[in-house]
Design a binder for these strands. Structure first.
Lengths: 236, 236
DNA sequence: CAATCGAAAAGTGTCGACAGTCGACAATTT
DNA sequence: AAATTGTCGACTGTCGACACTTTTCGATTG
């Protein structure tokens, strides 16, 4: 019996391979701060805990290493990446650079649907600013910026943004509280969106610079002050 | 008898782990075109040929996947990445974006040593333009641009540049011949260097845009015309 | 002759095992 | 007491094996 001779648009059943699942589990544990920066991630321990063998754990480790979440020292395994303050500066500097570009491109290619989607995402961000849920707010903030990169139409740029974002989440997750007043964070997105709507390149770049520079200073200050880290505790 | 109580300057012994070596071997084979885009890279075959087991080959594969040299389809292994023409556009677009930024930063942080190094690298490029060695010229060209990113002082940016460059090398290596007249390629670097020396941001950005836009158009045209690929031959 | 089916070959995903290496702590020497 | 050496446990790097899936290719059928 033939059920379907032509594709019908069903969501393909992807047997999430182990590596992906393990990577996700580790990622969650890292950005939630459950495994703190500098902590060793022993293959055997992870494998035991997840009930799998070490091989896929190793591969997941390599994956996360390429994303900047882990570092591996040959012969000594993986540990959660620590970010020196000036590495965070590098990260934000680069992020501003590509988001400027993304925003200008996005403004050029903007469709009415895109415009609506951006507006709605920003509204969501305002809503989450009301309730007190730092993790959620970071998430919605991230989505707004990601949307801009999506609209830019440059997929490689989008991938880069995702990489940078996942790296930044280590440090942002580390800072339990937000780096600024929730309401204010949501507010500073408004001029950015407004700038994009004008379509003027200089104005857009200024908007991105202003908005992200703000976030940069907030994060940088917290990171420099608080947890002079170098933690090396072991975590299962 | 005490041989050495104080360090004596012995070169540290770095046991090149297998994964790194395998990755390098595969990378060479790919950017040299020995394994063409789209070709399947079977773990077992590679392992046999190199005389190692499959485990390190898999890890090397994951590494190269993260660098954009390979793609993996779950259950079907790795194959050399093919670049659709618009992916190359994305790549160059992003490259221009970050090199603009890098050049402006580099101009700000430039020391006399840096200035000299840049000048000398450009001279080398001129020299290689004389002899006919496309691979070498691509290499020296790459080094010049990399040097700018190095001088920028943003390490994350440098890493990104390396990633983009290794991706681009697949397509550049694919085009056996150069995308332009060797002499001309070397020449178009001069105004770029001159612009950087002025230190004026707008002028520098214009210089990068002009220079890389040129390369972009050359590569894009060749890629679109010649080898409408989709090769799927098998390679040991 | 083309298309279909099915068995064999090849390849991938995962596992458990072993050898070599690293780090820590105890024993020993200066 | 300080420094060096020896020993032990834990962990990483690598390997071969097995089960399952995909691909290949020849035989069969319409």
């Amino acid at each position: 019996m033939r059920l379907a001779s032509k594709p019908v648009g069903l969501p393909a059943i992807v047997s999430q391979d182990l590596v992906t699942q393990i990577a996700r589990a580790l990622t969650d544990a890292i950005i939630s701060g459950q495994i703190p920066p500098g902590a060793k991630v022993a293959e055997a321990a992870v494998a035991r805990e997840l009930g799998v063998s070490r091989a896929p754990v190793r591969e997941a480790g390599r994956l996360l290493e390429s994303q900047g979440l882990l570092v591996s020292i040959p012969g000594r395994g993986f540990s959660v990446r620590t970010h020196a303050p000036d590495e965070i500066d590098d990260l934000y500097d680069l992020r501003i650079c590509i988001e400027k570009h993304a925003a200008v491109l996005a403004a050029q290619r903007m469709t009415p649907e895109n415009r609506l989607a951006l507006r709605r995402q920003l509204d969501v961000l305002h809503e989450t600013a009301a309730i007190n849920d730092p993790a959620r707010q970071v998430e919605e903030d991230y989505r707004f910026h990601r949307l801009i990169c999506e609209i830019s139409g440059n997929r490689r740029l989008l991938k880069l943004f995702d990489d940078l974002a996942s790296e930044l989440r280590i440090v942002i997750g580390l800072i339990g509280r937000l780096y600024d007043d929730p309401q204010r964070i949501a507010q500073t997105h408004e001029p950015l969106l407004a700038a994009i709507e004008t379509g003027d390149a200089a104005q857009i770049q200024g908007g991105v610079e202003y908005h992200l520079g703000d976030a940069w200073r907030g994060v940088a200050q917290l990171v420099r002050n608080l947890p002079s880290n170098q933690t090396t505790e072991k975590v299962s």
